[in-house]
Structure formats: structure tokens, C-alpha cells
Amino acid sequence: MHGDGTRVAARESPDSDQPITDQVSDADEGQVAARSGSRHGAPKAPRRRDARRSGEGLRDGSAAGKKPRSRADLVRTGVAGLGQTLITFGLVVLLFVVYELFVTDLFTNQRQEELTQELRENWGDDPTVSGPDLPGGGLSSIPLGEGFAFIRIPAFGVDYVKVVIEGTDPDELEQGPGHYVDSAMPGELGNFSLAGHRVGKGSPFLDLDRLQPGDSVVIETSDMWFTYVVLGDPTTGSFDADPSGIPGLEIVSPQDVDVVFPIPGVDDSSVEPTAAYLTLTTCHPKFSAEQRLIIHAILNGPGLPRADYPDGPPALTGG
């Protein structure tokens, strides 16, 4: 009876924040009682149920200076808990932004380095074998997620080099610019189309909107350099003034798949492409997926063998 009374008292102790289990020991009760500041660790007399009830207030009162669990305290605890939850949620969202903007860059850059090394090794192992990246080599011959070419955009700096990966699923795009699997290969007649992230994941296409007509986009395959130039009129800077009628830069809705058709914007499969185009797609505006920013370019001259131009085509060497 003695112990019972103590246990009940401890469990009902208004000041203990810790849940008191039924297995609570006498020592624990002592602690709880001590912490709560009450001196009733060993009640002098056995209490009747009603006495305990009515004595509750008195005991609380005797625990002077400590917080009795009144209704106001419950409200305070609830509000504090809600506040902490909201702050925690805010911090998590903030951390997610940091993740999107910076941490994914680290992941992607590391992956790009690995891919670069793999690709260089593949190409270096046996230069006489033409890899699956050759024009006309067959679209299905490149496994999804495998790097098969480098893209360089001199306007973004001499150190702008990214490995192009086959496929445009999220798994591929988080590694680098991805090639639309049904589109042409580098140098082929048709439309060599790539998608890339605008912000985060290495941000390969962050500055696509800064490209000007006539800017070069250089694609390096296992044995060739292909130099594409952004469509439009370089003298006026107008993207829409290209003789082909295809704009160098356009902003479209995500459903406008005709930008990656063999002839950009021509939704007619019976018309055979007579030129080799390059199309880059990314999201627009930044941080949004509302629209797509599209760059169209056209192959400038024939591809140059890497054997003859080890340092790159004139667009890269400034010649």
C-alpha cells in the first residue's frame, strides 16, 4: 500500500515530463519526486482515492516554484511543440534547397569525372575500333546511362566540358546532359538533341540563355569533332533571322516535342532532314519547370577527325 501510493503519486506528479511506466522503481520515484520538488516521496498515511484527488491541488501548491501542469501550461507546451515542429520543418526545407543547389553539384561533378575517365579509357584502349558513338552506328547500341561524347561550349569558358550520356531519364540527367534516345547522333542528318539541368546537378545548361547566334557548340566523339553554331543572325544578334526559319533560341511549353524532331519544328516524318541540327533543352525560367528553353544549332562544315586535330577544331583553338 505504501509503495502503491507513491507510485500513483509519482505517475500523477504534475511536473515530470518523462512518462512514468508501471515498472517504475522506488528509486525512480524518488528521483521524480525529488525533481518535482515535492516532499511526498513516502506519504505518511495511506490515501483513499477521493483524498488523493482532492489532495492533488494541495500537493501542487506545495511544489512551490515549479510549474504545475495547469491548462495554461498544457497550452504552452502545445504551442511550444508546434513551434519547434515548424522550425524543424523550415530547417529541413532549407537543407533541401542547399541540397538541390550545391550538394547535387558535388554528386554530379564527381560522376562526371568518373564518366570522363571511363570514356577516355574506352577511347584510348583501342583507337582503331570505332565505338558505338559513330554516326549511323545505330541508336540502340549505346546502353542507357553510358557516356558517349563530350560537349564543349566555348562561350561558357574553355573549361566547360561535359560528358553526354545516353537517355533523358532522371537517373541519366543527374549525371550530365542526356541524349534523347530517338534523336540523331552527332554529325548525323537530323537533330542531335540533348537535355540538361538548369540549376543543380552540375547545372550544365545554366547559361543557355546567354548563347548568341553564331556561338559554337563542339561535340567530341571517339574519333571526330563536330562543330555546331547557334542559329540566327550573328551580325544583328537576332535568333529568328536564320534563313532556315528555325529560331536559334526559343521558349516553348513542355509538351512541344517538335523541337527535337529531325527538322526542329517540322511535325512531318515524311520530310527527310537535309541538315544536321543540334538541339539543347532545359527548363525555364530558372528554378521552375513551367517552360522549356530551347537552343537550336546547325552543323558547321563537316566533322573533323580527331587524329588530324588533336587539340580540337578551330572553334576551340581560336583558329
Binding site: L95, F96, Y99, E100, V103, T168, P170, L173, G178, Y180, A195, G196, H197, R198, G200, K201, F205, V252, P254, Q255, D256, V257, V259, V260, T281, T282, C283, F287, S288, A289, R292, I294
Partner: peptide, 19 residues
Amino acid sequence: LFIVFPWVEPMLPFNDITV
């Protein structure tokens, strides 16, 4: 950073960059 975000990210809409 390494488990929850990579898992939740594909379900969010703002990473769509393809047509």
C-alpha cells in the same frame, strides 16, 4: 542529404527539363 532527399526528389516537379 544522402537518403531522404535523393529519394524524394524525383517526385517533385521542378526537375523536369525534357520535352
